[in-house]
Amino acid sequence: MQVILPDEQIHQIQILLSNLIQKEIEQQLEQSGLNSPYLNKQQACDYLGISNNTLDNWIKKGLPAIKIGKTIRFHIESIDRWLTTHN
C-alpha cells in the first residue's frame, strides 16, 4: 500500500520532525552540561577523550583550569586554544 500526500503536508511533517529533533538535541546538551562553556573534570575528560590521570597531568603542564575552592572548572575555548599550541 502506498500513501501519497500533498506537498504541503510533506513540508509540515518535515518541519515537525525537524523541530522534534532540535528539541531532543537541546535537551541532551542541557542534561550533559555541554551547552555551558564551563566543564567539570568529568565533562572535560569526556570532551577530550582522556582519563582523569591524563587530565591532571595536562593541568600540571599548563592546561587552563579555574579553581573555586575545591571545585575545578575548564573553559571549553581555553581548552581548545591550549590544545592547538601543545600538540
Rank of each mutant, 00 (worst) to 15 (best):
S18R: 04
Q28H: 09
Q43P: 03
K61S: 15
L39R: 04
G33R: 06
E77K: 15
R81W: 08
L83G: 03
K61V: 09
N87Q: 06
G62I: 10
T54D: 04
W58E: 06
R73T: 14
I4T: 07
Q9T: 09
I15C: 00
Q42N: 12
Q9A: 08
Q2D: 05
D80N: 15
P6Q: 05
G49I: 10
Q12L: 12
N19P: 00
G33M: 03
E30I: 06
S51K: 09
E77Q: 15
R73N: 14
Q9M: 11
N52R: 12
L63M: 13
D56W: 02
S18T: 05
Q31N: 11
I15D: 03
Q2S: 07
M1F: 02
S51T: 15
G33S: 04
L83T: 08
W58C: 07
Q12G: 01
G33K: 04
L29R: 10
S32W: 04
A65W: 01
I76A: 13
Q12T: 03
N57Q: 11
E77D: 15
I15H: 00
K61F: 13
T54S: 11
S36A: 13
V3P: 00
W82Q: 10
S36T: 12
N87G: 05
N19Y: 00
E30W: 06
I4P: 00
H75A: 14
E24A: 12
N52W: 08
I21N: 03
P37I: 09
W58A: 09
P64G: 11
P64Q: 13
N19D: 10
I79T: 11
Q31I: 05
